[in-house]
Design a protein around this nucleic acid. Structure first.
Lengths: 94, 94
DNA sequence: AATTATGGTTTATATTATAAACTAATTTAT
DNA sequence: ATAAATTAGTTTATAATATAAACCATAATT
């Protein structure tokens, strides 16, 4: 039947973030902003949500004198992403 | 890279409705309600949106003395669904 | 003749997404 | 040296969306 779709992942921007984080080992805020074509504000909010859910970690540091935000997917996030994709298949299979 | 996801389809309930309508030739309101596990109110609203977008047709008739609402996907809806699925693949491919 | 059930629609509320405004520091140009 | 613009974000306000609650009309049941 039609399974539930994790509402945290069923959002274009958050799904895009997670999708990118699945394929890289850490992504910077600015990189995510470019790749997802989002505004900084929206990205900031959605990263926080993913972080609060434990799906990603957000590490704040400095590169030279500028702040640098680096995001990584967690084991929990990876599992959630896989579960989401599996559930989604019910909806989109031919 | 990451394509836009048609916001009309990127909703659990509307996607579920469309997914079902892809595989049957017409579905009744009550059937969709059962299969999607939604409330009548929510279903009614989402069906209207899909209908307004021209993704489905809603035919109202009577079965005996009771109202009967039958939904069908349109050619436009089919195209939109396929486009959505293709765009989504960017996000979920391994 | 009340009560309950069916098949919905409408309206109100909660949630979510997005945009706008702001902060703080750093470059660049004058 | 200082004003203007850029970078790298965060916070707050507003718009959009989803969901739930309340409602309506008719029919069937007790």
């Amino acid at each position: 039947m039609l399974r539930e779709l994790d509402p945290l992942l069923h959002s274009q921007l958050r799904l895009g973030i997670m999708s990118i984080l699945m394929s890289v080992d850490g992504a910077e805020f600015t990189f995510l902003k470019e790749q997802t074509n989002s505004t900084a504000g929206n990205l900031s909010v959605q990263l926080d949500k993913l972080s609060e859910a434990g799906y990603i970690t957000i590490e704040k540091s400095f590169r030279g004198k500028k702040p640098l935000t680096t995001c990584r997917i967690t084991k929990k996030g990876l599992k959630a992403f896989e579960d989401y994709v599996n559930a989604l298949k019910d909806y989109i299979k031919p």
